[in-house]
């Protein structure tokens, strides 16, 4: 096995009395696209929030790049390349596209690289270049999702966490978003992708975990999971 950039060891997370994550263990190897699929409320977003320090695990350990980050502050993690594009995109509606992108580079001190990354982001997302003076709030859902990913890329991530990038988007747009995710991965960014849309997530990932009621139920290579009868029945809409 190659080196894991991210490793969760028996994580338990609670919301008050609710046991949201039960002994969740998973790992992401450098260079991979790993997807975490599951139904609404299964604990997908909770897992991501715990990884990036928005929530704290009551027990267990989160390791990133060989270090225990279970109690690290979110902004420190962003500085070390662990970046999340949140669910619902989190676009600043009253800032222009370009200002949104620049905020993505907030944690970085290498100014010249930021400028070239901005050009690069416009390269990957030509639509954003067309609209760089437009306010974030005026973009369509798909464009906002692109902006959210592009903004996360501006933080120069080593590991990018994507929370439901297909949420609320038309199938054609979802296709474009996932093609972009492939391209981002080809550039060397490791990706942990959380999705309800299991079909497309499994097509665009190397490995996958299925989470149900806070427990990891199935794991394996994405191609295998696509033919797994349990996955087909529960998540791919086949009987």
């Amino acid at each position: 096995m190659t080196e894991a950039i991210l490793e969760l060891k028996s994580i338990n997370v609670f919301y008050g009395a609710i046991h949201a994550l039960r002994n969740v263990s998973l790992h992401v190897n450098a260079g991979e696209v790993v997807t975490l699929i599951g139904a609404n409320g299964a604990g997908k977003t909770t897992t991501l929030a715990t990884i990036c320090g928005l929530l704290r695990a009551r027990s267990g350990e989160v390791r990133y790049a060989g270090q225990d980050i279970s109690s690290a502050q979110t902004h420190r993690l962003v500085e070390s390349g662990l970046v999340m594009a949140p669910e619902g995109r989190g676009i600043f509606p009253n800032l222009t596209v370009e200002e949104n992108l620049r905020i993505g580079a907030y944690a970085r001190k290498d100014k010249p690289a930021v400028a070239s990354d901005l050009a690069h982001a416009y390269d990957i997302f030509p639509r954003l270049a067309e609209r760089k003076r437009q306010k974030g709030g005026t973009l369509s859902g798909g464009e906002q999702q692109m902006l959210s990913i592009a903004r996360a890329l501006m933080s120069a991530p080593k590991l990018l966490l994507l929370d439901e990038p297909s949420l609320g988007l038309a199938p054609l747009i979802v296709q474009t978003i996932f093609e972009t995710i492939d391209r981002v991965n080809e550039k060397g960014v490791t990706i942990l992708l959380v999705e309800q849309n299991a079909n497309i997530a499994l097509k665009h990932s190397h490995r996958a975990y299925v989470i149900e009621s806070g427990c990891i139920e199935i794991e394996g290579a994405s191609t295998e999971l696509r033919s797994d009868p349990r996955v087909r029945a529960a998540y791919l809409g086949e009987t």
């Binding site: 928005l54 979110t74 902004h75 962003v78 999340m84 600043f92 933080s155």
Partner: peptide, 18 residues
């Protein structure tokens, strides 16, 4: 800029490394 980002959306600001 960090102050403005926090005022828009504190959670997202945190994720941007603020």
């Amino acid at each position: 800029a960090a102050m403005r980002a926090c005022s828009f959306d504190m959670r997202t600001a945190r994720l941007m490394g603020v």
